[in-house]
Amino acid sequence: MQILEVNSLKKVYAGRFGGSRVEALKNVSFRVERGEYVAIMGESGSGKTTLLNILAALDKPTGGSVILDGLALSKISDTAAAAFRRDHLGFVFQEFNLLDTFTLEDNIYLPLVLAGKSWRDMREKLMPIAARLGITDILKKYPYEVSGGQKQRAAVARAMITQPRLILADEPTGSLDSRSTDELLRLFAEVNRLGQTILMVTHSVKAASSAGRVLFIRDGEVFHQLYRGGDSDAQFYQKISDTLTLLATGGRTEREAAQ
C-alpha cells in the first residue's frame, strides 16, 4: 500500500526583490510504499532539504503535489499541517534539534504533551522505546550533558513516540562519530523491520546502504534509483558508490542511453 506519493514537484525560490530565481526542485516524482526504508541521496545543493521541508509541510511547493496517506499536503492550512506533523510524522535531524531547556525525557514528551496526553500515558509509551534505544538511564539529563549519539537516540525516541506513519530523517548521521552512526543505522533497520516507514535524506553512502531503496537527486530531479534486492549491506554499498561515481563524472544512466 502506498503511503507517500510525490508528483512532479517543483520549487522555485525568487530573490528577495524579484532578482535571481533559483530552481531548487525541477520535477520530482516518486512513491513510497508502506514499510519501506528509502534513502534520498544527492550532493549539497541538489534540493534534498527543500524536498524534505515540503514533505514535512514546512514549506509549500511552487508546483506539483504531495499526497501523504491519501491527504494532499499542499492544500491544507498551516494549522492543520502542524497537527498533521504532530500526529503522523516523526522527525530526526542532523542537529538533533532538542530543546536545551528540557531534559531528554521532556524533549521526548513534547509532541505528546502538545497532543494533550496525560503524564501516565506518556510514561507508558516512553518506557519500552527508551529501553529499546538504551536511553532509560539518561532520561533525566539535559541535552548538554550527554553525547551526540545519545542526543540522536533521544531525538529518535521523540520521533517514534507518536507512532507516526512516516519518519523523516534529515542527515541523521551527519553529526555522529562512526560508532554512533553504526548504532543509529542498526536502529533504523530494526524499526523498519518492525514495520516503520522511514524516509532518510543523506549524502553518506554508508547511511544510504542501510536502506531498502536509494533515490538519487541531481539538479532538482530524481536522476536514478537503486533497489537493494537481496544484496548485503556491503554489496549495496558498492553499488551506491559506483552510481555516485557515475553521477560525479557526468555519466548517463541506462534510461537516458536508451532514449
Binding site: 514546512l58 497537527a83 535531524f93 534539534n97 532538542l98 502538545l114
Partner: peptide, 10 residues
C-alpha cells in the same frame, strides 16, 4: 523553529 518542526502550530 524546533517547536514548529515538532508540530506546534504558529
Amino acid at each position: 523553529g524546533i517547536m514548529q518542526k515538532v508540530g506546534m502550530t504558529d
